[in-house]
């Protein structure tokens, strides 16, 4: 089993030291990624999804950040133990990343072509002419029209969708094993969104690249993800295969997120809903379940004790007291009320 795991994040805890105190952004998070699969990490902003994935590439700003514990095993080696030189060999070549806002994640004063070629030169010994040809080739692959012209343009001369394609070109340039896509379409139009996702799927098939897709929007993951990890307040709330999560969400938080997706709630009675309240401020971590105050099915114990993970299959776990043996009654209520979703 373990052999299949390309990336295995174990017990990751990351804090940020701010002037008001220590903020626990990620707490004992585990997830893994198998070869060429797509894992979606879903959660609201501040859930720790970006922080935990940025740690994989060593992008956590230290200070103020601090990685308090954990391991990030990539091909059985702990990336957290790598020094700058070793990391720079991995980044951009074996693991790469694209970010939310293609407007700001490209250097505004550098031609896009040079930004693509930079990552080629960094990881292989090729001539300037070869890198230019290769860059045009790659740009064609991600369907940037007129790559020969675009290559000498600056980011602001491209549309948002084109810029994100440039970012994808950079990320895929060295055919990485893993692509981390941090909200890759949040800043884009809906029509462009689907194009980008189609492109990502295509590239994944072509290059056999495993993808970690980070998003706050359950609507976008259905068509692309194999497995889903739901995060909240720096914790993994639920983890399961995509179909399982869609048809039988087990955590009330997951249910809340699913209800917020327009297409899943388009029947008349079930109107689009948001989850009441705000996520806890991670300066003072609540003693019980972090979701308890917003949870419709919260029980006394939820406020007092942190739940454990209740495992059903290898690939499935949920961080919720409802699945404790003694919570049968409340679980039944949950199932009755939320059954309509299935």
């Amino acid at each position: 089993m373990d052999n299949e795991k390309l990336l295995d994040v174990k017990n990751l805890t990351i804090s940020f030291h701010t002037y008001v105190g220590e903020v626990a952004a990620v707490r004992n998070v585990d997830f893994y990624l198998k070869k060429s699969e797509v894992l979606a990490i879903v959660g609201e902003s501040g859930s720790g999804k970006s922080v935990s994935t940025q740690a994989i590439l060593g992008l956590t700003p230290i200070p103020p950040g601090e990685i308090k514990s954990g391991k990030i095993l990539f091909k059985h080696e702990d990336l957290l133990k790598f020094d700058e030189k070793e990391m720079s060999k991995i980044c951009g070549s074996q693991i790469s990343m694209i970010f939310q806002d293609p407007m700001t994640s490209l250097n505004p004063t550098m031609k896009v072509g040079n930004q693509i070629r930079e990552v080629l030169h960094q990881h292989s010994d090729i001539s300037r002419r070869e890198s230019r040809e290769r860059a045009i080739e790659l740009m064609t692959l991600v369907r940037i029209p007129e790559p020969e012209m675009r290559i000498d343009q600056y980011p602001h001369e491209l549309s948002g969708g084109m810029r994100q394609r440039v970012m994808i070109t950079i990320a895929m340039a060295n055919r990485p094993d893993i692509l981390i896509a941090d909200e890759p379409t949040t800043a884009l139009d809906v029509t462009i969104q689907s194009q980008i996702f189609r492109l990502l799927k295509e590239l994944r098939t072509k290059f056999d690249t495993a993808i970690i897709l980070i998003t706050h929007d359950f609507g976008v993951v259905a068509g692309i993800a194999d497995r889903i990890v739901v995060m909240y307040a720096g914790k993994v709330m639920e983890e399961d295969e995509t179909d399982q999560i869609y048809y039988e969400p087990r955590h009330p938080y997951t249910v809340g997120l699913l209800k917020a997706v327009p297409s899943l709630a388009d029947n008349e009675e079930e109107k689009l809903r948001t989850i009441d309240g705000t996520p806890p401020f991670l300066l003072k971590i609540p003693s019980g379940c972090p979701f308890a105050d917003r949870c419709e099915y919260a029980m006394r114990i939820c406020k007092e004790k942190e739940p454990q993970y209740f495992q059903s299959k290898d690939s499935s776990r949920v961080f919720c007291w409802l699945y404790h043996d003694q919570a049968d009654g409340q679980l039944q209520r949950f199932k009755d009320r939320e059954g309509r979703l299935r």
Binding site: Q54, L57, G58, L59, E84, K85, M87, S88, K89, I90, C91, G92, S93, S96, M97, F99, D101, T104, S105, L106, N107, P108, T109, M110, E118, V119, Q122, H123, M167, I170, A171
Partner: peptide
């Protein structure tokens, strides 16, 4: 703190390369 500095890091550029090619320039 700009995003493109993060991108440069994610590309596998070393800190000195980032400082010279991206940070000082901009």
């Amino acid at each position: 703190t700009a995003d493109y500095i993060k991108t440069a890091k994610a590309k596998g550029l070393r800190n000195t390369q980032i400082v010279i090619r991206h940070q000082i320039r901009n």
